[in-house]
Simulated scan of single mutants.
Amino acid sequence: MSGIAAKQQTQRPRLGFLGVGWIGRHRMEAIAQSGAAEVAVVVDPSTQALEAAEKSAPGCERAGSFEELLTKPLDGIVIATPSAVHAEQAVAALERGLAVFCQKPLGRDAAEVRRVVDAAKANDRLLGVDLSYRCTHGMRQVKERVRAGELGDVFSLNLVFHNAYGPDKAWFYDPKLSGGGCVMDLGIHLVDLALWVLDFPKVTRVSSHLYSGGKPLTSRETQVEDYAVAQLELATGASVQLACSWKVSAGCDAVIEASFYGTKGGASLRNVNGSFYDFTADLFHGTSRQRLAEPPDAWGGRAAVDWATRLAAGQRFDPECERLVVVADALDRIYRP
């Protein structure tokens, strides 16, 4: 049984952080600074990472392993580990009665994601995934304009995420550990944004081309893709074009764009000067342009803080989690069109 059932509502949830490398520590610091929850326990194989985490959250306790973490009096855990173990760790935590916030991808395929969502539902526990680009001010503005009908019927979407560097951890390039390459790492955000903005219409057809080193991917068992293009056709009649890559000659650090075109207008989120963090958003009508959002916007930890805030308010399983399976299924279809 989780500690949350025995706590008074005035007490903050106690959280464990499984993995406190760069991104795990960033999410930990965002939650700590928000005051929504207490950083109680940290786990990481790197002593350097643990020391940095302890500087950010004085008084937190170290645990030597995931198994030890599960024995602590906690209300939830934040997972920032290699993709291959996300589903297993999330299910184990949920079955112990802990809420879970996990780095993307929640699983390497739709079957793994389904297992986690089912465990969250069966144990009535709050589940969150760090699909963080939803939380940019610009993307929220775009969604609001689409929902308000300012674009009319959206019929074309164009989303791009090119990373001129690529990941620096070896496991990203091992298909058994990562589940895939740039589609799993970057394309997941593009698919999620496209479906989220349009309130998750059914994906009726998928076509794709995946490349490794400039040549068509020949084996998903031994290779991961570093360039991919895909087209998703939606039940609304809309067409979604996606492109993502690692280590492409982009002329800058990153090219990130999510554009939506409708019968009355368009809207677009774009990164600024190759930045991974700074975005503008604009609304288009003919040749006119209206700025909706621009930097600065400290959005990186918002998804984690939102989850921690909801946990503190006593929220449990959210049926919206079912849509995590929809995104995972679309990725499966990109890999196996």
Rank of each mutant, 00 (worst) to 15 (best):
I4W: 13
A5F: 09
K7S: 11
Q9C: 02
Q11F: 15
R14Y: 07
R14S: 10
L15F: 02
G16L: 00
L18D: 09
G19D: 01
G19W: 12
V20Y: 07
G21P: 06
G24V: 10
G24Q: 07
A30H: 04
A32F: 07
Q33Y: 02
G35S: 07
G35E: 04
V41D: 02
A49F: 11
A49W: 09
A49R: 14
A53Q: 09
E54W: 07
K55I: 01
A63Q: 05
A63F: 00
G64P: 06
F66S: 00
F66C: 00
F66Y: 15
K72T: 06
L74S: 06
G76V: 08
I77Y: 09
V78W: 00
T81G: 05
Q89M: 13
V91I: 10
L94P: 08
E95V: 13
E95M: 02
R96Y: 09
L98A: 12
A99N: 00
K104A: 06
A110L: 05
A111R: 09
R115L: 06
V117E: 04
D118M: 09
K121D: 00
D124H: 03
L126F: 08
G128L: 10
L131V: 14
S132Q: 12
R134A: 10
R134D: 03
V142I: 15
R145I: 08
R145H: 14
A148V: 02
L151N: 02
V154K: 02
S156C: 04
L159Q: 01
L159P: 01
F161Y: 15
H162P: 05
N163E: 08
N163G: 00
Y165K: 14
P167W: 15
K169W: 07
F172L: 13
Y173A: 14
S178H: 06
G179H: 08
C182N: 13
V191K: 14
L193T: 15
W196L: 11
V197D: 00
L198T: 10
F200P: 01
V206I: 10
S207I: 10
Y211T: 11
Y211W: 15
G213N: 10
G213R: 11
T222S: 13
Q223E: 15
E225P: 12
A230H: 11
L232V: 10
T236F: 09
S245L: 04
A250D: 03
C252V: 12
Y261N: 03
G262E: 02
G262T: 02
A267H: 00
A267P: 01
F276S: 07
D278V: 14
L283H: 01
L283N: 03
T287S: 13
Q290L: 12
R291F: 01
R291Y: 04
A293W: 13
E294R: 14
P295K: 15
D297K: 14
D297G: 14
W299Q: 07
D306K: 13
D306I: 12
D306C: 11
A308N: 04
T309S: 08
T309D: 00
R310M: 03
A313V: 04
A313T: 05
Q315V: 03
R316K: 05
L324T: 07
L324D: 06
L324Q: 09
V325H: 04
V326I: 07
V327N: 11
L331D: 02
L331W: 12
D332L: 10
R336D: 08
R336I: 05
